[in-house]
């Protein structure tokens, strides 16, 4: 019997399928943070004053710098996709490495911010944290939980892009076969979007 081959196989690479899969994954990420935004909304509605007071502990300058850093990293990863599609492999690699560098800058700034808060005893479970009014301690819990989860995503995103850098280097990912790079870009933009909301909700309550 001659072998019949299906025209649509699940085992062959399918860029459209991977892209759709990535988008669906992003939706789950959105809803994951969504649960936390919901908790934030409820407790901010219940404790408007306490959230305002607690937010003065955060440093707007640092937050703004980090926002600009992350937006710029989104620019570089988006440009790297165009660069690779235009066949400029070297430029694409530089732009991807720049994205990873920006993510490191973001994490360093984040580290100093967290460090300052922990120094003031504001991490959940610490002595000063326990003595805070309930609304304020909720603010700091949500701050650490949400920015922490976001930072985790930044790290994962940077590693993802790092893997793509290697694959572009070995020509496994090219302009025509660029889905992996595009997907890492999509993921990175989502991380950016989450931060776009975290920034005003925590830093800009004033």
């Amino acid at each position: 019997m001659e072998q019949y081959v299906l025209p649509n196989s699940g085992h062959s690479s399918n860029p459209e399928a991977s892209k759709l899969g990535m988008w669906l994954f992003l939706f789950t990420e959105l809803l994951l943070f969504g649960g936390l935004f919901l908790v934030y909304m409820v407790y901010r509605a219940l404790n408007p004053e306490a959230f305002l007071i607690a937010s003065y502990e955060l440093n707007i300058t640092m937050g703004t710098i980090n926002t600009v850093v992350l937006l710029t990293s989104s620019l570089t990863i988006a440009m790297s996709i165009s660069a690779l599609q235009k066949g400029k492999k070297g430029l694409a690699l530089y732009l991807m490495l720049a994205t990873i560098a920006f993510s490191l800058i973001f994490m360093v700034i984040k580290f100093f911010e967290w460090n300052a808060k922990i120094h003031h005893g504001l991490f959940p479970g610490m002595e000063h944290y326990q003595s805070l009014p309930h609304g304020e301690s909720l603010f700091f819990f949500l701050y650490f939980f949400m920015t922490g989860l976001h930072a985790l995503h930044v790290i994962i995103g940077a590693i993802f892009i790092g893997i793509v850098v290697v694959k572009v280097g070995t020509d496994e990912v090219t302009g025509d076969q660029g889905t992996l790079l595009e997907n890492s870009g999509l993921y990175w933009h989502l991380v950016d979007i989450i931060w776009i909301y975290l920034f005003p909700l925590f830093y800009l309550i004033h």
Binding site: N8, G10, A17, L24, F25
Partner: peptide
């Protein structure tokens, strides 16, 4: 996730 993509792309 798998099923949605399969139904969209592999009919």
């Amino acid at each position: 996730l798998n099923f949605i993509v399969t139904i969209h792309r592999l009919r």
